[in-house]
């Protein structure tokens, strides 16, 4: 790896011993990048792509009954669903990080056999229709499920139709996004830093904690954002495995879907609320990451 590459990652030894690495913003490199010309072959599909992604949202904004917006926001059920959504999506993201980062490490760094099969298995929730995912969760964790039946018979405890079930359903669907992002970041990161740390006597865990984690922090952050956004919008697995009850399991997407049944305008307003909250959260977090990185 050449010197400019190191600069680009914002990594530099902070002391002569070189045992600790600190992040630093590479100002020169980044200002050169943003001034680049956009080739026409990239510009045109980019414009079409932006239109494709943004116009449906514009459609929602045009159709939104703005006068109703404040009235809807004041409804206790809306606040309840919104709080539950943000709360469960955040817990699902934390759970995904605790379980998903180690999976990504195993996929990127370990030499175990059948790694590609493992990767395919881990990403199954991405291709599975979420409602089927919800049924699959029933078959394992439901009160007649493989593990759930034992829980129910031993402790009289049943997971479905609880807030915990919402978090489980969201984690199941959203975690692969985090795993893929972090694995990509780990593969792109230079493993020689880890080798160096090991040479200097750090054990596996402390190398991971003090070298690998800071190295792939941007990848983890990007994965966590994707994961959180996916969890926030989760519908199929949640309504199947956790059911739908205001206050315990009714998240915003469920409220939106049910409103769509007989009150499309309310559904649009609720969608906008969800959209605004997620955009605001993501923008704020991004700001914090950027400022922290500097």
């Amino acid at each position: 790896m050449s010197d400019p590459d190191l600069l680009e990652r914002g990594l530099r030894p902070t002391s002569a011993t070189g045992s600790r690495w600190r992040r630093r913003t590479p100002k020169v490199v980044s200002s050169q990048r943003t001034g680049a010309k956009i080739p026409l072959a990239l510009l045109i599909p980019a414009i079409v792509g932006i239109a494709f992604l943004v116009l449906p949202m514009v459609g929602l904004l045009i159709r939104a009954p703005w006068s109703e917006l404040l009235v809807r926001l004041a409804e206790p059920e809306v606040g309840q669903a919104l709080r539950l959504s943000v709360f469960t999506a955040t817990l699902a993201t934390l759970a995904s990080m605790v379980l998903g980062i180690p999976i990504a490490w195993v996929l990127a760094r370990s030499a175990i056999r059948g790694r590609s099969i493992l990767r395919a298995l881990v990403t199954v929730p991405l291709v599975l229709p979420p409602v089927v995912g919800g049924v699959a969760l029933f078959l394992v964790l439901g009160r007649r499920g493989i593990i759930g039946a034992w829980l129910y018979d031993t402790f009289g405890f049943s997971l479905p139709f609880t807030t915990t079930a919402v978090v489980i359903a969201e984690t199941f669907v959203a975690m692969p996004f985090l795993v893929i992002s972090v694995e990509g970041a780990l593969r792109a990161a230079d493993a020689r830093f880890e080798d160096a740390a090991a040479t200097l006597g750090a054990n596996g865990w402390s190398t991971f904690r003090r070298v690998t984690l800071p190295l792939v922090a941007p990848g983890i952050a990007a994965g966590a954002v994707l994961c959180w956004a996916r969890a926030l919008g989760e519908f199929g697995a949640t309504i199947t495995f956790a059911g739908n009850f205001p206050g315990t399991t009714q998240t915003m997407p469920l409220a939106v879907y049910l409103a769509l049944q007989n009150d499309p305008e309310a559904a649009i307003v609720l969608s906008l609320v969800l959209l605004v909250v997620s955009l605001a959260t993501l923008t704020l977090l991004r700001e914090r990451w950027l400022t922290r990185a500097r």
């Binding site: 029933f138 439901g142 009160r143 479905p160 309504i239 059911g243 739908n244 399991t249 469920l254 049910l258």
Partner: peptide
């Protein structure tokens, strides 16, 4: 005293079929 308000008949029946 219900635990879930289902989005349609199919969703309600699935939960009965699974015994949940």
């Amino acid at each position: 005293s219900v635990d879930s308000l289902e989005e349609d008949v199919r969703a309600a029946l699935t939960k009965v079929e699974l015994g949940e």
